[in-house]
Design a protein around this nucleic acid. Structure first.
Lengths: 244, 244
DNA sequence: CTAATAGTGTCTATTAGACAATATATG
DNA sequence: CATATATTGTCTAATAGACACTATTAG
C-alpha cells in the first residue's frame, strides 16, 4: 500500500472525534447603536468570558435549525428574525477541549426584549459592537466577519427592513443604515432613493401618530416590499482603503 | 434536573460521532465554456456516480488547507489557484453512512492540465456546467451555490483575472465574463469600462505576437492589478426575475 | 414663535450603454 | 482586397449627491 492508497483509505471514525457547533452572531439596533447578543460562559473552557451564543448540533437536527434553536434559547424569539449562514471555522486549536468545527450564523432582529441567560450561561445581554469585552475562542473574528457581511448586505438586499419593526418610516430606515454603516446620510437624497428602488418598501397609507420628538410633520409609514435584491443598489460611500 | 439543564449538559462525545469533510467546487474555462472538476466515485456510497472532489479533514489540518489538499490531489496544482470558502451543509441524512457536515470551497483556475484521478476516484475530468451528469449526495446543490457565487463575485471583485493566465488581453477578460455570465457584452464599452476601474488591470507594455485568428490588430497585454474590490462595479444586466 | 423634521425640486458630475469611427491584422 | 478585431470617440439616459425649498409639527 503506497501513501496515496493509505490516504484514500483514511477513516475518520478511527481518529479522535470532531465535534460540530453552531454559533450565532445576532445583531439588533438598541439605544441608538448596533448591538450583538453575547452570553457569559458559565462553564470551562473560558468560563467567565463573553461569547457568541451557540452549542453542539444534535442528532437529527439540521444546521439552520440548530442555529435558530440556540438563538431562541437566549432570546425566546424565533419569528421576526432573519437568519442566514455566515461561515465556518475549523482551525485545529480553536477550542482547547477537542477538534471543534463551528458553523456560524448571522441573525438580524428588530429591537428585542432583554435576553434571558440559558442554563449554560451566567448572563446574556446586548453589547454595543464598538465597545466589546474580550471574547472567548475565535469569536472576535467571527463577529467581525458577521459585521462586515451585514454592512455589505444592506447595500444590495432589503435587509435593513429586518432591523425595523413591522411598519416603519423612511427616517427610521435611514437610521438603520446610519447605525450599521456608521455614517450619516443625507435625509432628502436617501428618501428619494428608497422610494425609487422597486419593491424595497410599500406604503401602508398610514402616518405616525405624532411628529418627531423635537418637531416636524408626521411621517408616512411603510412596510417591507417584495424585492429580494435592490436594484439599483444603495452603495456605501466608497472607501479607498477597502478597495486596495 | 429540568429539561434546560439536561440540554445544557448535552455532551456531543456521548453521541454517535459527526464527521467533517471539505468539498471543492473547482471552476475553470475550457473549450469555450465554464467547467467544473468532478471525480467518479470508486467507493460506496454512490460508487460510479460523479461527485465534487473532497474528503475528510485530517487531525491538525485547518479547513482551507484540507480544501487545497483535496484539490491538489486531483489537479496536481495548488498555486495560481484562488480558493475561498463557499458554505456548509449538514442535513442529517445527506450522507447515508453517518452524520457528515461538509464545508464547501470554491476554487477558480486558469485552464489547467487534465486532472488525474486520485486513488479514491475511478476517473476525474472537467465537465461543462450546462451539461452535467447526475451527482452524488447533495453536490448538485453545492455546485449551484458555487456557480451563483462565482457569477456574483465577478461583479465586484477582480476574480475574472483568476480565470485568465498571467498576462491577458481585454478581449480574453471579456471572454471570461461572457462565459461565466452566459451573456454577450459590447466589446467597446467593456474595454473602456475595464480600463476605468482603478487597479483592476495594469499594462505590461507588451502586445500579443499576432492579431486574432480571423484578423484584427495585435492587442495590448495586461496583468492583474492590485485592486481587491472593483469600484465602480461591473454589474450584470439586471434580470427582473432575480430581483423579486 | 423657533427649531426640527418630512418630503420635494433642481442642478451637476459620473456612469452605463448604444452606436459610430478608425486603425491594424489575417487570409 | 474583404473581413474581423482592438481601440477610441460621441451621444443619451439613468443615477448619485450637493443644495435649496416648502410644509408641518413639538415645545
Amino acid at each position: 500500500m503506497d501513501e496515496s492508497e493509505f490516504l484514500a483509505g483514511y477513516d475518520p471514525r478511527a481518529y479522535p472525534a470532531v465535534a460540530v457547533t453552531v454559533d450565532v452572531v445576532a445583531l439588533t439596533i438598541r439605544g441608538g447603536g448596533l448591538r450583538v447578543l453575547l452570553i457569559r460562559r458559565a462553564e470551562q473552557p473560558h468560563a467567565g468570558l463573553w461569547a457568541l451564543p451557540g452549542g453542539f448540533i444534535r442528532p437529527g437536527e439540521d444546521l439552520p435549525q440548530a442555529a435558530a434553536r440556540e438563538l431562541a434559547e437566549e432570546t425566546g424569539l424565533s419569528d421576526r428574525v432573519h437568519i442566514e449562514q455566515l461561515a465556518s471555522y475549523g482551525a485545529p486549536e480553536r477550542d482547547p477541549r477537542m477538534r471543534i468545527v463551528s458553523i456560524s450564523y448571522l441573525a438580524f432582529a428588530p429591537d428585542l426584549p432583554d435576553p434571558r441567560a440559558g442554563s449554560d450561561a451566567a448572563d446574556a445581554s446586548w453589547h454595543p459592537v464598538d465597545k466589546l469585552p474580550e471574547l472567548a475562542f475565535d469569536h472576535d473574528r467571527i463577529l467581525a466577519h458577521g459585521l462586515e457581511r451585514a454592512r455589505g448586505k444592506l447595500e444590495y438586499t432589503p435587509l435593513a427592513t429586518a432591523f425595523a419593526g413591522e411598519r416603519f418610516t423612511i427616517s427610521e430606515l435611514r437610521g438603520v443604515y446610519e447605525t450599521v454603516w456608521g455614517v450619516s446620510l443625507h435625509a432628502g437624497n436617501f428618501h428619494r432613493k428608497i422610494l425609487s428602488v422597486p419593491g424595497f418598501v410599500e406604503s401602508t397609507g398610514e402616518t405616525t401618530e405624532s411628529g418627531g420628538a423635537r418637531g416636524g410633520p408626521r411621517a408616512k409609514l411603510y412596510r417591507a416590499g417584495d424585492a429580494r435584491l435592490l436594484h439599483p443598489a444603495l452603495l456605501r460611500p466608497a472607501r479607498e482603503e477597502q478597495i486596495r
